[in-house]
Amino acid sequence: MQLNIVAYPQAVVISVQEARLDAHNSPELKTAILQQFDADKANLIIDLNEVRFIDSSGLGVLVSGFKNASTRNGMLLLCSMQPQVKSMFELTRLHRVFDIYATSDEALLSLKDVTL
């Protein structure tokens, strides 16, 4: 799985560089998220701009990251969601769980006052 990971002062942005996030590759995203938590990075932004398809496994990995961030007093935000991907969040009502931003810049801006 291709991931682009960039650390900013207030959060780490993980950009998924794959058209599909499914049961085949989502365990790799889970590992990458856990590595950030292990490195004491509690605020993560997952950029889904390149993702055109997500299944329940992909959703499950994001829920797992969301819960993990919360237990570390951090946040896991989502951004740049394509309409088809957003429709899956709406179908499973997970759009009410996550904070979803139009761009990674907006997500980063929302965390600018976060004290690390």
Partner: peptide, 18 residues
Amino acid sequence: TPDDLSERGRGIFIIRSL
């Protein structure tokens, strides 16, 4: 119930919905 924060079990719900 897809409202909960479980990490698994949404697949069947999605299939039934579509």
